[in-house]
Amino acid sequence: MKVRVQNHWPPGHIRTPAYLRGKTGEIEREIGLFNNPEQNAYRLPPQQRRLVRVRFTMAEIWGDAAETPDDVIEAEIYAHWLEPA
């Protein structure tokens, strides 16, 4: 399934790397439910969030600057940061 990482830039602690925001990838696998780091970081009672591994091509992330366009990066992204693409 294709997903896009939301292009949001909130202040404070998040676990979505800047270089992946706004980028589109494929869900590689579902990992399960984990504490939302955006609450956990402030010691607030955390809600459980779906965590998924998303696979991005270097071409998608870096465009023409990609070292090898077909190489890939896989990262864990919380589902509330993802939208259908």
């Binding site: 984990f34 190489d71 896989e74």
Partner: peptide
């Protein structure tokens, strides 16, 4: 995350062009 083949090369590992490099960014709980 941007030049993994160059980084690997500096560690003495050369990856052939027909082999895909897969970078795993440990962003969260795994």
């Amino acid at each position: 995350v941007i030049e993994p083949r160059k980084v690997l090369s500096e560690f003495g590992v050369e990856i052939a062009q027909d082999v895909q490099v897969r970078v795993h960014d440990s962003t969260a709980d795994m």
